[in-house]
Simulated scan of single mutants.
Amino acid sequence: MKKLGSIFLVILLSMTVVLSACGDDGDNTASDGSGDDSKGEVKLAMVNWAEGVAMTNLAEAILEEKMGYDVESTTAEPGLIYTSLAEGDYDAFLDGWLPLTHGDFMDQFGDDVADLGPNYENAKIGLVVPSYVDVDSIEELNENKDLFEGQIVGIDSGAGIMKASGEAIEEYDLDFELLESSGPVMTTELSSAIKDEKPIIVTGWTPHWKFSRYDLKFLEDPKKVYGESETIHTIARKNIKEDMPEVATFLENFKMNDDQLGGLMGEISDSDKEPLEVAKEWMNENEELVNGWIPEEK
């Protein structure tokens, strides 16, 4: 009997340890799979454009380091991003160009997303050349076709600036080919041409670090195909204010000017570190500005 009692006691103690372990596991894991110190996960979307990379990584750094969220940032094409925001697969996108560049997307998905307002004003798109190029207007391009080998270096095929550039080719009856590439490829081609002082035309926009690094100019657009100055907005899924009020308020408060965004973009471009690490350093160097974006806890 003594032996049976000892065996029973060992089994009972083992069951207690197992049940305790199961209980601890449940207590330490959030329902969304995040650790118990996290307020939850925020899913950000971005296009691989300089300003979007800078702002998205800065937002990620603040949400994680100062606000206690887990953040997943995903790079995709604009069309997919707007579709996914409308379907609730992403929480926010900090690079919505309005009213022209992403106007078609907002016409299509505007009722199913939330516009949290502007985060950068006086943005601009158009055709850009180095200032040493003796051409000032889109209307002068055909007579200088050979100078540029009949090519305009573009970016991603789904970008609004590519659609506008296609329209510019039609409106101005340009005998030019619009080359598809990406933001990084475009800046590499531009840098290479400037190094050799060769003429080049690229699809360009501000804010972008290339304007602080190189002496560039927008070609005049008398027909206003590229529109006037634009505003970059933060676009979010429709119910973010109800589901994530603190995150939504932070994103509404998040605004940068030329010096702030230009400085961050330049630091990311010049650094060998990952953009998120550079963004964290910039965040720590600009605490007063950053803390002003974070809503006070109630």
Rank of each mutant, 00 (worst) to 15 (best):
M1W: 08
K2H: 06
L9Q: 08
I11R: 00
I11K: 00
V17H: 03
V17G: 03
A21V: 12
C22G: 08
G23R: 10
D25T: 02
D27R: 14
G33S: 00
D36V: 11
D37Y: 09
D37T: 11
K39H: 09
G40Y: 00
A45L: 12
V47S: 08
V53Y: 04
A54M: 06
N57R: 05
A59F: 06
A59Y: 10
A61D: 02
E65A: 08
P78D: 09
G79S: 14
S84Q: 14
A86E: 05
D89I: 13
D89H: 11
D89P: 00
F93P: 08
F93T: 02
D95Q: 14
W97T: 01
P99L: 03
D107K: 15
Q108D: 04
F109E: 04
F109D: 02
A114P: 15
N119V: 09
N119M: 15
E121H: 08
E121I: 10
L127T: 04
P130Q: 07
P130D: 05
V135F: 06
I138S: 04
I138N: 05
E149S: 14
E149L: 10
E149N: 14
Q151G: 05
D156I: 04
S157M: 12
I169A: 03
E170F: 07
E171C: 01
E177Y: 07
T187P: 00
T188D: 06
T188E: 10
D196S: 13
P199E: 03
I200K: 12
T203G: 09
W209Y: 15
W209I: 10
D215M: 09
D215H: 06
L216I: 07
L216Q: 07
K217Q: 09
D221H: 06
D221C: 04
K223Q: 12
K224Y: 05
G227P: 11
I232P: 00
T234A: 09
A236W: 13
A236G: 14
K238P: 15
D243T: 15
T249D: 08
F250H: 05
N253L: 06
N253A: 04
F254G: 02
K255L: 02
M256D: 04
N257S: 12
N257E: 06
D259M: 08
G262H: 02
G263I: 11
E267D: 12
D272C: 02
E274V: 05
V278N: 03
A279R: 04
E281V: 15
W282V: 09
M283N: 01
E287C: 02
L289K: 13
L289S: 03
P295N: 01
E297W: 01
K298M: 08
